[in-house]
Amino acid sequence: MDRRTALVPIRYLTLPGHGPEDVVADPGGRVLTGVSDGRILRIHGLDDPPTARVEHIAEIGGRPLGLELLPDGDLLVCDADGALLRVDPEGGTGNVRVLTDSAAGERLRFCSNVVALPDGTVYFTTSSRIHPLEDWMGDIVEHTGTGRLLRLEAGAAQAEVLLDGLQFANGIARSADDSFLIVAETGARRLTRFHLRGPRAGQAEPFVENLPGFPDNLWRGAPDGPVWVALAGPRVPPLDLLHRATPAVRRRAARLALRAPFRPSGTTGVLAVDDDGRITRHLTRRRSGYRMVTSVCETGGRLVLGSLWERGLAVCEAPVTG
């Protein structure tokens, strides 16, 4: 299915910080996000912007990207500077603990997104082993294929590598029954399935390919709900051609891309995907004033969008079920 419907904006909430890259909603309808100066923010009353309150709950000292709320209320945070963190939102701004900063004997870099399973096992992605966050465009253009899916067992100090060679591994989500994970490969415009149980446990396969844009963070609320996929930008056909060129050509193109001014596309989009790999919703808006949507969550009958580019959150209509 690719029946596109309009992504309808309702309101915009300016934040005291830049680049709310990931957004997650807690059971009380509050939205949590991280901004570029390292702060973790919690937004109360998003349904009523004049009375909305932004609470500063933590300072990680790095650049927060992917977030995951745990059943006990703690928050897992991917630090783009190279660590997976655990934050107690109620413990004051200094209550941040490093869970791991290494995998397979080397220091992590560019931690991107994370999920936790009920048994305490944590799975997370790293987008690139070559380019840091500030050079993300270089990795997309060079098509390095150095992204990874990692696992951190409960109580372990070092993560293990489950998948290597991913094209800018990014968002991650659980299936409804926790039998597999869904990983966004931004640079390949696809979602990949990694089996956790059954005869194919430990194996990966394409889940949804040839997406209409570049998938970024993934979010699932209830197990019976869809996996929401943020599209950071629409497909760029010349980039598809460049990815078929030799590594040397792609490296030169990446160097040029990093020196060129960047402005995100005005096309905004999000997808809803079910556990059979079907796209059940494709919401899009052309000439959008809110650009580079890197995350989406659903709360209070609304979709909340985050962006690496913007200084706030966008609230949009959620599609009617059925």
Rank of each mutant, 00 (worst) to 15 (best):
D216G: 04
V96A: 07
V304S: 09
A245P: 07
T146H: 15
G301L: 14
A248G: 11
F124K: 11
V31R: 06
A272Q: 04
D178Y: 06
G94P: 02
L99V: 10
G213H: 06
G312F: 06
V296D: 12
R63V: 10
A176V: 01
E59Q: 15
G187E: 02
D135G: 04
R30F: 11
G277A: 10
R4W: 05
L108G: 13
H56N: 12
G213Q: 07
E90K: 11
L117P: 08
D139S: 11
E21H: 07
M137L: 15
A159R: 10
L76K: 02
G38E: 11
G61S: 12
A260S: 12
V35Y: 10
P212I: 00
D240N: 13
R291A: 14
L75C: 10
L303F: 09
R97D: 07
R42K: 01
R97Y: 01
R42P: 04
D48C: 00
P49V: 02
L256G: 08
T33N: 05
C316Y: 03
V229H: 03
I172G: 08
E153N: 13
R220Q: 00
A253V: 10
E205V: 08
T144R: 15
L32C: 07
T100M: 05
G17E: 03
E317G: 13
N170L: 04
L241P: 04
H44V: 09
A83I: 03
A154D: 15
L162D: 08
D47V: 02
T280G: 00
R291L: 15
T186W: 00
F207I: 01
L76T: 08
D224L: 06
W219N: 14
S265V: 09
L191E: 00
D26Q: 04
N170H: 03
L163I: 06
W309Y: 15
I130N: 09
G289N: 10
L108Y: 06
G221L: 00
Q203D: 13
L283N: 01
A154I: 08
T268D: 14
D119G: 05
W309E: 15
C78S: 11
A201F: 01
R285Q: 08
R107K: 15
G138V: 06
G300W: 08
R263G: 12
L99K: 06
S102K: 13
D26A: 04
R278H: 14
N170T: 03
A184M: 00
S36F: 12
R281A: 02
R107Q: 13
V320D: 09
P16Y: 10
G187N: 07
A58K: 02
P238I: 09
V304M: 06
L152G: 03
D37H: 07
H243R: 07
